[in-house]
Simulated assay, not measured.
Amino acid sequence: MAETPETAEALQARHRKEQRDLVSRITQKKKSATKKTRKGVNDECERLERELKERQARELAILNGENPDEEPPLEGEELGTSEQETQANGVEKAVENLSISSPHPDTHAQSAPEQNGPKKKPNRAKARLARRAAEYEALAAQAKEEAANMPDLREQERTRMNQHLGRYGLQEKEIRADGHCLYAAVADQMETKGLGLAPRIQPKIIGEGDKTVPSYKKVRYAAADCIQENSGDFAPFMEEPLETYLQKIRETGEWGGHLELTALAKTYGLKINVLHGDGRIEEIGPGDGVKAEEVHEIWLGYYKHSHGLGEHYNSLRKTP
């Protein structure tokens, strides 16, 4: 069954949505850029805008029944054979229609331009390109206006989070958004509370002395080792082989989530409170086998919109 062609209205609606999404994406990228990364971010944003503009112009051309790959003729380029024949026929007809008698003196000035030859035809290819560009600019302007009128999710989340922090007597300790944020936030909480980073299952970090290993990496290895030791509890929730999953935790900047928090709560004997922007608190406990008096409580803040790279965790310290 053939796919139903996209209508002009549907195409324009999709283009506007793509423009809004791109404006939002570029805004987030530029807000999160540093002095060192600003040039690269700007170059990437320009490339994304250019690629979207070219693709949408191509789709508009196809919808209009035009060939998007057709090169516009250069100004002054000779006409093709068919156009030459058409133009010649027009000249012959014009000659046949000429009156034998001399023109009236009053009409001489008006007919003079016609005697100088046929009027130059407009460049239709250039007109098509101009029309496509105008359509794209109109869509871009409309998308930009709609994006500007959309709620600022980042600002809303920050405002709500600050309200909840005050309610629980907490303050943020900003953690670098580099893929290690969950582990770095847990490390900050434990070090601030004087708990140390020695889990029940001692992590085996190969090739590095203990003093040279960053805190977040010790936490990464602690999570990986706990998952490995209790693979029967964790493997059913994985979408890839266990060894591949563990290698990503230990050796890459792969983001952590609920699975890793569960492993850290278990191996460190923690009750991890994760505060969300909507005020919800996600509680992750150490599970069975840990006495209540041995459980230590830590707080993390979870952010969905406030950081350019996506989901993020900060350490939440008690207000002095």
Rank of each mutant, 00 (worst) to 15 (best):
residue 176 R to P: 00
residue 179 G to K: 07
residue 180 H to W: 05
residue 207 G to Y: 08
residue 207 G to P: 06
residue 199 P to A: 15
residue 190 M to D: 13
residue 161 M to W: 03
residue 193 K to F: 04
residue 208 E to A: 04
residue 174 E to P: 05
residue 192 T to V: 12
residue 161 M to V: 08
residue 182 L to R: 09
residue 188 D to W: 04
residue 164 H to I: 04
residue 158 R to Y: 00
residue 186 V to I: 13
residue 194 G to S: 14
residue 197 L to F: 08
residue 174 E to W: 07
residue 187 A to K: 04
residue 176 R to L: 06
residue 195 L to P: 08
residue 184 A to P: 03
residue 168 Y to E: 14
residue 165 L to Y: 08
residue 159 T to C: 02
residue 201 I to N: 08
residue 158 R to T: 05
residue 185 A to D: 01
residue 180 H to Y: 11
residue 190 M to Q: 12
residue 178 D to Y: 11
residue 203 P to I: 10
residue 175 I to G: 00
residue 177 A to Q: 11
residue 189 Q to E: 14
residue 203 P to A: 01
residue 170 L to W: 01
residue 179 G to H: 02
residue 170 L to V: 03
residue 201 I to E: 11
residue 195 L to V: 14
residue 197 L to T: 10
residue 159 T to Q: 05
residue 183 Y to A: 03
residue 184 A to R: 10
residue 168 Y to Q: 07
residue 159 T to Y: 02
residue 200 R to Q: 10
residue 198 A to S: 08
residue 173 K to L: 09
residue 181 C to Y: 00
residue 177 A to W: 01
residue 179 G to C: 04
residue 170 L to N: 01
residue 191 E to G: 11
residue 180 H to F: 10
residue 176 R to D: 00
residue 191 E to K: 12
residue 186 V to Y: 15
residue 164 H to C: 02
residue 194 G to Q: 14
residue 189 Q to R: 15
residue 161 M to P: 03
residue 165 L to N: 10
residue 202 Q to F: 08
residue 203 P to Y: 06
residue 172 E to R: 14
residue 190 M to P: 13
residue 187 A to I: 11
residue 158 R to Q: 03
residue 158 R to W: 01
residue 206 I to L: 07
residue 207 G to W: 04
residue 196 G to R: 03
residue 205 I to S: 11
residue 180 H to A: 10
residue 200 R to A: 12
residue 192 T to A: 10
residue 184 A to Y: 00
residue 201 I to G: 07
residue 171 Q to E: 11
residue 172 E to H: 02
residue 182 L to K: 06
residue 197 L to G: 12
residue 172 E to C: 05
residue 202 Q to M: 15
residue 168 Y to F: 15
residue 178 D to A: 15
residue 192 T to Q: 12
residue 209 G to S: 15
residue 184 A to C: 05
residue 206 I to H: 09
residue 178 D to P: 10
residue 205 I to D: 06
residue 177 A to V: 00
residue 180 H to Q: 09
residue 202 Q to C: 06
residue 164 H to Y: 13
residue 175 I to P: 01
residue 182 L to D: 04
residue 201 I to S: 06
residue 205 I to M: 11
residue 179 G to A: 09
